[in-house]
Simulated scan of single mutants.
Amino acid sequence: MTLPPRPNFPNHPGQPPYPGAVPPMYGAPLPPLPPPKSNAGLIIGIIAGVLVLVAGVCVAGVLAFGAYRHDRAASYAEDQGPLSAATRDDTYAAPTTKAAPTTPAAPPPAPARVGDCIVVDEAGAYLGPGNCNGTQGTYKVLSVDYSRDTCADSQSPYLTESGYRLCLELYLVRTFCYKFPSGPGWVVAASACKAKGTVHVIDIVPGAANGNNCTRDLKWNRWYQFTHPTVVYCVMQY
């Protein structure tokens, strides 16, 4: 015989009655229900096991991924060869453009060469190249210096032209006529020989101090000494 299910009833501690509950059909009271067993330990153990399992899976995944990256890096290094410093991002520097070296400007052409005779006016202004045969040109060029330093003979005449210093010496020719300055100045060719104030060169005595060594074979009436270089011109003055 199957007994009906035990109903809840008001006098049973800890069990609130449900609607329609009635006292038991049999007179013997039912023994009290045993206290419910706690499942907390089981639940905690299950959770701990799950966490251990998850942690193990994560660690295995990290290790596997690291091994995968290592294998990929090794494979790439084998395919590409060793990286040079020039291709590494941490050593890359933007290329810089170097300024082209500045080339000094070439000096202009020199107005005359060493050994040339030049034409000047009475103030010493450069008038252009001449010649050394007496027809034009009264000074010979000793040096041409673009840096315009001093002449080898610091007392020699010089002029500056086109950025050059031309160091000079007086250069006159026998039988030609010139005009000497009455004071400081420059010797120039005479516009007309035997014109008043001109001289006709009769003799030239290099290194002389006076006219004692001037020629006795030709007529002259005056001598002039110039220095740097030292020379005496024996002349006929008009």
Rank of each mutant, 00 (worst) to 15 (best):
T2D: 13
P4F: 12
P4G: 09
P4H: 05
P5I: 12
F9T: 06
F9E: 07
N11Y: 08
H12D: 10
Q15L: 12
P17Q: 05
P17Y: 01
Y18T: 10
G20V: 07
G20C: 02
A21R: 04
V22N: 01
G27S: 14
A28S: 12
L30C: 08
L30D: 14
P32V: 02
P34F: 08
N39R: 14
L42K: 10
L42M: 08
L42E: 10
L42R: 07
I43V: 14
I43Q: 15
I43S: 12
I44C: 06
A48D: 02
G49S: 14
G49W: 06
L53P: 03
V59H: 01
A60F: 01
G61I: 06
L63T: 01
F65E: 00
F65S: 10
G66N: 03
A67P: 05
H70S: 12
H70A: 14
D71G: 03
R72L: 12
A74L: 12
S75T: 13
D79V: 03
Q80D: 10
G81Y: 11
G81S: 03
P82E: 13
S84M: 05
A85L: 10
R88M: 12
D89N: 02
A93R: 11
T96W: 02
K98G: 04
K98C: 07
A106G: 03
P108E: 05
A112D: 13
R113S: 09
G115N: 14
V119D: 08
D121E: 14
E122H: 11
E122D: 14
G124A: 05
A125Y: 02
L127C: 08
G128S: 09
G128Y: 04
G130R: 00
N131M: 06
G134N: 04
G134T: 04
Q136P: 00
G137M: 05
G137P: 07
Y139S: 06
V141K: 09
S143H: 10
S143F: 00
V144H: 04
Y146I: 12
D149G: 10
Q155P: 01
S156A: 15
Y158W: 12
Y158F: 15
L159E: 03
L166A: 04
L168A: 02
E169P: 03
Y171P: 06
F176G: 01
C177A: 04
Y178G: 00
Y178I: 00
P184K: 06
W186Q: 12
V187R: 00
V188C: 03
A190F: 14
S191K: 09
K194P: 11
K194V: 07
A195E: 14
A195R: 11
K196M: 11
V201Q: 12
I202D: 05
I202A: 05
D203V: 09
D203W: 10
I204K: 06
G207S: 11
A208V: 05
A208P: 04
N210F: 07
C214E: 08
T215A: 07
K219S: 10
K219V: 13
K219L: 13
W223F: 15
Q225N: 13
Q225Y: 00
T227Q: 09
H228I: 09
P229W: 11
P229F: 08
V231I: 15
V231G: 01
C234W: 08
C234V: 03
Q237H: 11
Q237C: 03
Q237W: 09
